[in-house]
Amino acid sequence: MSERATGAGPGLDFRARGERVSPRRRGAWGWVDVRGRRLGQWAFILNRLTGLGLLVYLFLHLGVLSMLAVGPGAWDGFVSTALTPAFLALDVVLIFGLLFHGLNGLRITLVGLGLVVNRQQALFVALMVFGAIALLIAGLRIFAVG
């Protein structure tokens, strides 16, 4: 090890200086930086972002439901607010998050257990096509009721 290919004199021998092995990791930037990456990185980071977004939504949702404990006025007031176009647009964002995270999660579960490993990219594309169609139908329905 002392004759490493770095040709290092003692000044370059970071182990002798007691340095940690890998100080130059990319950090969480390596999760979100999709430049030069393929589909898999997009799936990875979108899964993370939709997951965190849905978790935030879960707690918002639970908070909003507390209006049911307040009484009929509070809840029915919220229902009419929720039918405004701005809220309905947010519903479409929510459905996107649910569909992406759910369908990609299905791929992760199957492939992560060693199933359809060699066709995993095709599986991803197929699930996303299905998701896009479902999102379109859901979006049309949401704005039809509004």
């Binding site: 009929p72 229902v79 519903d91 009721v145």
Partner: peptide, 21 residues
């Protein structure tokens, strides 16, 4: 669970949300 939840609470309900009653 969420598929049933979404359908039962939103997609088969008129206007997409149940009122208080």
């Amino acid at each position: 669970l969420i598929t049933v939840h979404m359908v039962a609470n939103h997609f088969i309900v008129s206007r997409g949300l149940r009122d208080y009653r």
